[in-house]
Amino acid sequence: MPTVPAYGPDAAGRLAEMADVTASDSALRRFLHGLPGVDAVGLQARAAALGTRSIKTSAKAYALDLAISMIDLTTLEGADTPGKVRALSAKGVRPDPTDPTAPSVAAICVYPDMVPVARKALDGTGVKVASVATAFPSGRAGLPVKLADTAEAVSAGADEIDMVIDRGAFLAGRYREVFETIEAVKAACRRPDGTSAHLKVIFETGELSTYDNVRRASWLAMLAGADFIKTSTGKVAVNATPPVTLLMLEAVRDFHAATGVRVGLKPAGGIRTAKDAIKYLVLVNETAGEAWLTADWFRFGASSLLNDLLMQRQKLSTGRYSGPDYVTVD
C-alpha cells in the first residue's frame, strides 16, 4: 500500500475505506475499545530504556540541528504583543545570530489574533505560521465559535492549525461528537484556493488519564482526518512525556500500516533541554522510523528548548560549554 500524506489529496479516499468503523457512536466505540490495550509499566519501561541511548559527536550534531528544524517555536500568552511575536519570528528564522549554519525552526506558533503579525514577519522565510484555535486551550466553546476561530486564523494566513479536542466529550464516551468536530475543523482549514492549512489535533493527554485513552484518541483523530496528532497544550500540569509520545508514535506507525496514511506527531510542553529533545528523536527513530524524522512529520511544541539546543550546538562546535548570555532572549 503506497504511503500517502494525511494532508494530501488521497488521504480522504483511504479514510473512506474505514468509514464503517466511524459510522456511528457504537461502531466507533467498538473499534476504539477493540484496539490492543496498553500496559502502562511496560510502556514506561520501554520509554525509559530508549532514554538511555547515548547520542554523541556526529550523531549529536545531526540531532541538534534536526531538533531545531522541528521546533514549533511557541508563544501563547495573554501578554503576547506584536513586538514579541515579531521578535520570536526573527529568532525562528535565524536562531543563532552568530552562526548562519544554524537551521530555522519549523514554525512560529501563536494565538489567532497574532497570525497576521507572524505571517508578515515570516513571509518568504520558509518558516510556517501555526495558530492554535478552537477555543484553545480548554476547547470549551460551541462548534460555531470553534469553526469561526479556525477560519479566522486560516484566512489571516496560518499554515497550520492546532486544535484541541473536547476532553469532556471524549471521557464521557461521546466519540462520534469528537470525531465530527475534528472533521468540521478540518473542513474549516480549507482555503478558497482549494488548499488547506494542516491540522494538528491536541488531546491534552494529561487530562485523558489512561494510556488506553491516549491510544483511542490517537486513532479517533487520525480516522477523522488529523494531519498531526499532538500531546498537549502546554497549559496543564502534565504535558508531553516520553511514554505518551512513544505510545502515539506506535499509533501513527500502526495507522500507517493499516491505511497507508502517514500522520505526524507533535509532543508539546515540558520539553526544555537538548538532552530531552534527543531522547524524543530516539523514540521516533526506533518506533515510527526514520520516515518520521523530518519537520514534515515530527514537531516539538516548545519555547525554551531552542536556546538549550543552540547552547549545545555551540558547545559541539567550539568544545566549550556555552552560557545563556551567548544565546538570545526573546
Binding site: R53, S54, I55, K56, T57, S58, A59, K60, Y62, A63, L66, L281, N285, E290, L293
Partner: peptide, 9 residues
Amino acid sequence: MAFEYAPAP
C-alpha cells in the same frame, strides 16, 4: 544524512 548513532564507547 540520517539519524545514525555514532559510537558511544
